[in-house]
Design a protein around this nucleic acid. Sequence first.
RNA 1: GCUCCCGUAGCUCAGAUGGAUAGAGCGGCGGACUUCUAAUCCGUAGGUCGUAGGUUCGAUUCCUACCGGGGGCGCCA
Length: 577
Amino acid sequence: MADPVLTVAELLRPTFTQIAGGVDSDPVVRRSDRADAQVNGSLALAKVLGKTPREVAQMVLDAADLSGVCSATEIAGPGFINVTFSNEFLASELVAAAADSRLGVRNAPAKLKVVVDYSAPNVAKEMHVGHLRSTVIGDALVRMLEFVGHSVVRENHIGDWGTPFGMLIEHLIDLGETEAANELSVGDLDSFYRQARTKFDSNDEFKERARARVVLLQGGDEETLRMWNLLVGESTRYFDKVYRTLGVLLTADDLMGESAYNPLLAQVVDRLRASGLIEMSDGAEVVFPEGFLNRENEPLPLIIRKTDGGYNYATSDLACVIDRVERIGANVVLYVVGSPQAQHLEMVAVVSRKAGWVPESTELTHVAFGNVLGADRKILKSRSGEVVKLDALLTESVERAADAVKEKNAELPAAQQAEVARQIGIGAVKYADLSTDRIKDYVFDWERMLAFEGNTSPYLQYAHARICSIFRRTGVDRAAVRGITPTLGHSAERALTVRLLQFDTAVWDTLDKYSPHRLCTYLYDLASEFSSFYEHCPILRADSEEQKMSRLALCDFTARVMERGLALLGIESPEQM
RNA sequence: GCUCCCGUAGCUCAGAUGGAUAGAGCGGCGGACUUCUAAUCCGUAGGUCGUAGGUUCGAUUCCUACCGGGGGCGCCA
């Protein structure tokens, strides 16, 4: 429990409960800009007790023992209690956190099996900024969930099945396998797909072949499956290249495409039928979950089996639920999928629960996100009006970062410049995506995301790099300052310490809502606090050796929190920039 | 038509389970570089929190209605 706000809340809860006559009563301790924290609970209690809030606040202060934690308390305004943490307490908490490999972040109360479904590009289609969001947000959540001790299963639900594969395979045949493989391996996925699509739309003979090919594919024809595998293989090799560039945890082992659920599809229908949930509607087998209506205000079905006997994405998503709950044993399933899928995923959740496949205690959550917009506030497009390819975007970001590095720090060796540019360029793209509330659309802007000021990853990375620079100059070993109890003489030292102790709260707040932007906001506040400290508190030329070591201890812990925090977001921390 | 999400400073965004004068960054204005990296810091101006009601001791936050923007609404995923 590194966060002093939580410590105060823990200390005061029994007091409030006692004053409330044994009814559990929240002291409502919050951060405050008038003190270190404010206790608001007296206001709510006052009415119940028939006393004024200030009287209740006084009762609390009389009954509670905050010595050792707070150096001052004061009743203010209508009945708030403002508390000031004691410097000794803050310093000792910091030492404790510095001795902790988890930097004060609490472990999860119970180790859960968490499935995170993210990225999900389509075979033979280009990865674009839409996949960027899913990939980056999902990856950050995976890292945080693992950090607090959960067992995480990554699943990349790639689109590797369905009717388009008829035309894609026929196009592969027309083109010749070698030529097709060449085209796909260089990442020219979209043009391959477009060519197939064009033929499909304009050529009846091709369309017929494509349809026949789908039947062969679904029937398990060996030669067809071989060609399908070729397509999937080339695409996933390309995806992997992008993942390596992006620096995410996803690997080939995490691939769980739609095709993987084929064997379960018939079972989905059977089990739903056995539960009596299946109804026939316009020739299709459907389930009507309660509360969903169509345009005509009639019940809206989830179609499990189409009129032609084929399955669709609802079927495979239901199969996913079965697989994740029954085979994997998931306690939590996170769908990091764009918000347009909200209703569909809700229907899948309702149906699978109604079918009794999902225990009450198992959480199914749609981690939804908005679009990436261009300057015109419309979905981001390239100059030529096409969707922006992800790998082109990453390349451009690294190039832009390289220009900046060259300008700012030309004396760095070229190889190191390139490495730092990569770390900054990739970090900037990720941070721009993670730092705003995921549910909203965000405006993509090169200038802003690569700026070295404001709420950007370069600014955070810079704070970290500065600390590394200080240690390089002093020659003091980082590990050597970890046991030092800092003296918090300057207000900037104190403010930095308070912020450092909130890392735990920041991580848990982030996980509570699956909102990485909360961790971003925290790290930005930390970087600002550090920059201010750096400006006002000389380290190498401190007044005394003791003060220097004290400040180095603050620097070390700041760098560790910054590096760890950025790592939880999937962002690297260069030591020089 | 039904339904979900969004609407905070000129711009881009934060505002935890409702709490005291609504916060940053950019841009504007004014300061600080023989310096531990100024890739920074300090100060200042700028908002009837979409509108109108309601609940509450207290509402940017909760409820209702409306306005504006976007998404979804049966065999594509």
